[in-house]
Amino acid sequence: MTTMNDTPLVIAGVEYQSRLLVGTGKYKDMEETRLALEASGAEIITVAVRRSNLGQNPDEPNLLDVVSPDKYTILPNTAGCYTVDDAVRTCRLARELLEGHDLVKLEVLGDEKTLFPDITATLEAADVLVKDGFKVMVYTNDDPIIAKRLEEIGCVAVMPLAAPIGSGLGIRNPYNILTIVENANVPIIVDAGVGTASDSAIAMELGCDGILMNTAIAAAQKPILMASAMKKAIEAGREAFLAGRMPRKRFASASSPIDGTIF
């Protein structure tokens, strides 16, 4: 669904109607994944790249049969990579896996406890990948200086975290996110940390171009219902941003006229 008076989200020259990007991890099974994706209305779907199981379960459904590249834009990630070399290698395997598709989500992690990005490695990997022809959507922290640097390297979208991956803590630093959005000439997509619909609405009201999430949907009690809630929250937040909120005032301002009262 297109939000009223809005333009589409454009990433690497491709237009998307949905501003919600979703992951495919942590679901109960492939069917739940499929239904949640459908309810979310997302068009860009992240996947991870891992060793194939050899001979253990030949009938196991393949994720790409459920999340068809004909229907969705597949965004392979570099989750689990802690070095530049591992991240670049994973992206090259993903490009081969997806028959030349070169849109990737780069994340180079620095620490297992926080899953915060290793920024120096992220900058280096982004540079290598951009020069190798990849269209890089990059996971980063909520630092406006680094966000700008990643844009200058040539990333097609910059994706600051709201809070640690899988934490569901919501936007921890709205002023930094706002500064990142104001400075940007590429889409800013909050990646990681939203927990519920209101978190998404807040991110969109700050002017973010989209939100990428996985755990907030997959770990909800009812993932398919949460996928639907997130879709609506992102549309509502986007419309509120475009509408421009009223100024905050400390004291009341009556909505009904004072003139004509009968007393």
Partner: peptide
């Protein structure tokens, strides 16, 4: 040799 495929991830 490494043989990889796509799995669920975020």
């Amino acid at each position: 040799i490494e043989i990889v495929h796509a799995v669920g991830g975020g």
